[in-house]
Amino acid sequence: MLDVRTCASLSEAAGILSGDRQAMLIGGGTLVMRDVNEGRLTEGTLVRVTDPAYRQMSVSGARVELGAGVTMAMVLASRELAYLHAPARGIGGPAIRTMATIGGNLFAATPYGDFTVALLALDAQVVLQAGYGSGRAMPLEDFLAGRERGGQGLVTAVQFSRPQNPSELFFRKIARVKPKGISVLSIAAHLPSSSGRVAQARVAYGAMAPLPMRARGVERVLEGKALDQPAIQAAKQAALEGCRPATDAIASEWYRREILPVHLGRLLAGEPR
C-alpha cells in the first residue's frame, strides 16, 4: 500500500527519507507517478515537499543555486538562465516541462536526463540534506556515481558558477522525433576561453554510458587549444573514450558510436543541428 506524506519543510522530508528506506520523494511526478500508474510501485511512502525553499532560484550572482523543485518551465521563464534554455527545452513538451523538476532529472535513467548533462558540463554540485542536519554539497559527478546505492540524503538544490560568457556553453540533443523525442544522445560543453584558447574545458554526454558522463578525452585535447579545425578534429578522434552506450528501443550501440563524433564536431564548430 502507498502512503503519501506532505512535508512543510525540507528538514522534515529529509528526516522521513533517512528513516524509511522505502520512502520516495515525489517532485513533479514525471518519473514516480509513471511507476505508480503502471503498477511497478505499489508499496512505501511518497513524500511531497511544500517548503518554498525547494523551488527557489538564486540566479543573478556569480554562484547560481536552483532548488531541486524548480521546474523546466521555471528555467525557461528566467532570462538570466538563457544559457540553460536549450537543455530545459529538450525535456518533453510544454505540459511535461511544467512538472519536470531539476531534482527529478538527476534521477532519470538513461536515455533520459538531458538537463543533468548540461549541469555536469557546468561542473555543478548537488546540495544534500540527510535527516534533520545541515546540508552538504557534493560534486554532481560523485553524486551520480553513488545514485543507485541510495542513502545520500534529500537533494535540495544544485549549485554552479555562472558562466561568464553564456555563449561558451553548448548543448545538443539528438533525437529521432523532434522536438520532444527521447534522446539518441546528448552533448553539453562548457568551453571558457582565455586569450583565444580553451581554459578549463568541461564536456559531458548523455546516453553514452549507464549514467551521464564526462568526456575527459575530449576535455584533454581541447584544453589550451584554439577552437579551430585541428582541435575539433582531435576532439572527434577522442570522442568515444570511456563511452559504454547501450542498445535500446531508441538506437543501437553501434549507431550511437557512429554519430557521436559527427555531432560533437558540429557542436564545436557552431554548425546548425
Rank of each mutant, 00 (worst) to 15 (best):
V64C: 09
V64R: 11
A68M: 09
G69S: 09
V70D: 06
M74V: 04
L76D: 03
A77V: 09
S78I: 05
R79V: 09
R79L: 06
E80K: 06
L81K: 05
L81E: 06
A82T: 13
A82P: 05
Y83S: 01
L84P: 05
H85Y: 04
A86M: 04
A86Q: 12
A86V: 07
P87C: 09
P87K: 05
P87D: 12
A88C: 12
R89H: 14
G93D: 15
G93F: 13
G93L: 06
A95S: 15
A95K: 15
A95P: 09
T98Q: 14
A100S: 12
A100Y: 06
I102M: 08
I102F: 09
I102L: 15
G103R: 08
G104D: 01
N105V: 09
L106K: 11
A108D: 10
A108M: 13
A109F: 02
A109C: 06
T110P: 07
G113V: 00
G113K: 00
G113S: 00
D114Y: 10
D114W: 10
F115W: 11
A118G: 02
L119M: 08
A121T: 13
L122V: 04
L122I: 05
L122K: 11
D123W: 05
D123Y: 05
Q129Y: 10
Q129C: 14
G131F: 12
Y132R: 15
Y132S: 15
Y132A: 15
G133Y: 03
S134P: 08
G135T: 15
R136G: 08
A137T: 15
M138Q: 14
P139G: 09
A145S: 13
R147E: 08
E148N: 10
R149H: 11
G150Y: 03
G153W: 02
V155E: 05
V155Y: 05
T156F: 01
V158Y: 00
Q159N: 02
R162S: 01
R162L: 05
P163F: 03
P163M: 03
P163Q: 04
P163L: 04
N165S: 10
N165M: 08
P166M: 06
P166N: 06
S167R: 11
E168P: 00
E168C: 10
F170Q: 14
F171S: 03
R172F: 04
R172E: 13
K173C: 02
K173H: 01
K173V: 03
K173P: 00
A175F: 08
V177H: 12
K178V: 11
K178P: 00
K180I: 08
K180Q: 10
K180F: 12
G181V: 06
S183C: 06
V184I: 15
V184L: 06
V184K: 01
V184D: 00
S186Y: 04
I187W: 08
I187T: 02
A188H: 09
H190G: 02
H190I: 04
H190Y: 06
